[in-house]
């Protein structure tokens, strides 16, 4: 290591310059978001670079109450939490069947499920919209949750199976010999072992649902039903070039939950990567 180190100083400097420049774009973008949502409009007019003079949460309070951000935040939380829970349960039992049960059509079915991951969402929107309107499911949480289940399931199942495969076959065999049925194996043996897998799948599902704009925009057109992503886009449209502090506050509120969830579950992602489950 050390012998080569010296001759490669220009290389090391080059790497650091590239990395620092890219790091600056990330840090600055985040700084810009946080600082400008705390600053007053007058402060922003002076400069977009300076840090805020004082901690001032009035912008955030204002958009929460006046700009329907609070309502949308609540809607998003309800939709994403329940959607995510259902998606985790379904993908767990599906993954269980794919990993531990033998059945006909397994290979074909796995291909079909994986291919739904890549189907153009825009191709689904028109037929789905007419379908949901017929079923009176537009502007309802149930309707959007069914759609979100559809778009998250394939990846969730794929990820669950990679975690389930890591469970040693002997444990399952021992349980079968002890007379444990499929449901018993799933609930008493697999569930406790699957905590990391469930967390990772859950977080990914949650963030896919939280970040979605297309389906929420088409299927939830009433203001009292809209989600966070729709709220911030239409708020920005309504404000135009207007008060930037308000717009940045709304963006900050939309970012915080996903950041917090990720920071709390980070260790599960790391474990997952080291066992090669996340590809």
């Amino acid at each position: 290591m050390t012998a080569v180190g010296k001759s490669q100083i220009p290389y090391r400097v080059f790497v650091q310059i590239v990395f620092v420049l890219f790091a600056i774009t990330i840090i600055f973008a985040l700084y810009y978001l946080v600082a400008n949502s705390i600053k007053t409009a007058a402060e922003i007019n002076v400069s977009q670079f300076t840090p805020p003079k004082s901690l001032n949460f009035s912008n955030i309070k204002y958009v929460w109450k006046k700009a329907d951000i609070g309502v949308s935040f609540r809607n998003s939380l309800i939709i994403c939490t329940s959607g995510c829970l259902i998606s985790v349960c379904i993908s767990l039992i599906t993954g269980f069947a794919f990993t531990f049960l033998r059945f006909r059509g397994k290979r074909l079915l796995s291909y079909l499920i994986v291919s739904t991951m890549y189907i153009s969402p825009m191709a689904l929107v028109v037929p789905l919209y007419l379908q949901m309107r017929q079923l009176h499911l537009t502007n309802t949480f149930a309707g959007i949750i069914i759609i979100y289940l559809g778009i998250t399931l394939a990846f969730a199942i794929y990820l669950m199976t990679t975690y389930l495969k890591a469970i040693p076959e002997e444990i399952i065999e021992a349980a079968v010999i002890d007379g444990c049925g499929n449901t018993g194996i799933l609930l008493r043996i697999i569930l406790p072992l699957m905590k990391p897998g469930i967390m990772v799948v859950g977080v990914i599902n949650f963030s896919v649902m939280w970040n979605d704009l297309l389906f929420a925009f088409i299927f939830l057109q009433k203001v009292e039903k809209q989600t966070m992503m729709i709220a911030i886009t239409s708020f920005r449209g309504a404000m135009g070039g207007g008060n930037m502090a308000y717009i940045m506050s709304s963006l900050l509120i939309a970012t915080i939950p996903i950041m917090v969830i990720y920071l709390f579950t980070q260790k599960f992602f790391k474990e997952g990567m080291s066992m090669g489950a996340i590809k």
Binding site: I93, T94, F96, F103, T116, I119, L124, Q131, L149, L153
Partner: peptide, 30 residues
């Protein structure tokens, strides 16, 4: 066993058939 497995698979298959399979058929028809 196949029957049993499809019992476990049914929730996912129902959702995916409804959201993808059926809608793609309708897309072509439309």
């Amino acid at each position: 066993n196949t029957l049993n497995a499809y019992l476990f698979l049914s929730p996912a298959l129902i959702v995916l058939l409804f959201i993808f399979g059926y809608q793609i058929v309708r897309l072509f028809w439309f």
